[in-house]
Design a protein around this nucleic acid. Structure first.
Lengths: 231, 231
DNA sequence: AATTTAGATTGATTTAAATCATCTTTATAG
DNA sequence: CTATAAAGATGATTTAAATCAATCTAAATT
């Protein structure tokens, strides 16, 4: 079978889901024979909310936004996903549909693996099943935190938190490329794009950050953290 | 060992977690020998957020509120749990702490089972592990829905939704006992208690519901649903 | 380079909802 | 059976944040 796979084999892949380390070599081989790689350009949709879920998708490289399409076309960005992330959504085990959409932010390399294969492995490899449970729990935990943040913090706190999250967990630097538009930044923090613009401006005025259209530099991390926590 | 267990044996228990049906008789016996029943009076705390998590708790009867303690003592009620519910929280697999609190609303009978026992079973019984994954997914799915509802619906919609949820999923009747205070109803729908009072009043004025201090009757389900969906 | 278009910015206005203050009712304890 | 506390109700006020309406880039396309 013709394959455009960039990664020669799961055996040598270091960017995929950590839980695959728990597979036996036979199981890994099974996955390797049934996987399908694809690349996506920025803006392209990788998973469409509501469509039938047949594959789990693993990000090998690049960044993607995980978002839900809510009422009257309003989106809410749940997470920014990077390499080693399993993308599937809880709907898979509820109604066999993807419960969120995923779109590429940067160029993305991803690996598709059918749920049939994964289910079979879950049924024979308890360690792998446990890893699944841990993955689900971790995501659920983050979701609970997000719920609290979105419902209890004020706009300044939510935006500060988002900036710190980019800096700390994704780019590991005080200065980073802002890959989201103001609109998307609003979908991530549950506020109108105009509010995003205003608050970014305020943070600049107070010399806490320096922001351009497509970049952010954190100047006063302590102040930003205080705003984020007290928000 | 002395036991106050009300349920004589897991074998004959019909109110516990459905996933236990997947246990072999030996496994069920293991659970039965290591379980511990307890009852709680209304208001008593069953799980305290942040405390070390060593047991999964299963509701056998009664209703409980699952809530997170957020910033400056503000609570958010995540769910109203009834019999057959597994209570543990995603924190269990993240930092071995309960990530939410649970308090009895009515008199409650509950069963405590150590995570050690459950982990052991997960490691030998893949069907049971799959059931765990399904349970986590179902809860995560509900959480996503709640996030959308809380962030995108207006107060009227959120309150209407909560009332319909009580009617449809918990009491299975148009008329039911309102077990939550106005304050708690606010914590469930993310609004101030005064707003709850006001909106309940409005719904009464429009003859959509009839509400007393401790009861609600839905008079016009269609209108309530419209408010819930459009809200 | 000129034109078009999408995104960003800014200020003015409106709106939803919280907060505050007060009063009333209901429940609880002495 | 009162006294006290707790919860509920109501109106006035404030606040946060959305919306609206222009205007202003910056990027893409012709």
């Amino acid at each position: 079978m013709f394959s455009e796979n960039v990664v020669s084999s799961c055996e040598f892949c270091t960017n995929c889901w950590s839980n695959f380390k728990k597979l036996s070599s036979e199981e890994r081989d099974l996955v390797n024979r049934n996987r399908y790689e694809a690349s996506f350009k920025p803006g392209e949709i990788i998973i469409k909310q509501g469509s039938p879920a047949s594959n789990a998708i693993f990000l090998l490289s690049g960044l993607a936004k995980v978002y839900m399409e809510g009422y009257s076309g309003r989106n809410i960005i749940l997470d920014i996903a990077e390499h080693a992330t399993l993308l599937a959504g809880p709907g898979v085990h509820v109604n066999s549909r993807y419960s969120y959409s995923v779109a590429a932010i940067t160029q993305i390399q991803a690996c598709f693996i059918s749920f049939n294969i994964l289910s079979n492995i879950i049924n024979v490899n308890p360690q792998f099943a446990s890893g699944f449970i841990e993955d689900l729990s971790g995501k659920s935990y983050k979701m609970h935190q997000k719920l609290i943040s979105l419902t209890q913090k004020k706009m300044h706190g939510r935006l500060a938190e988002a900036l710190l999250n980019f800096s700390d967990n994704i780019f590991h630097s005080d200065e980073f490329e802002m890959l989201l538009s103001r609109q998307e930044l609003g979908e991530l923090t549950n506020m109108a794009k105009e509010s995003v613009v205003r608050i970014l401006g305020e943070l600049e005025d107070e010399n806490i950050i320096r922001a351009t259209l497509r970049s952010v530099k954190i100047l006063d991390r302590d102040k930003l953290r205080i705003i984020s926590v007290k928000g």
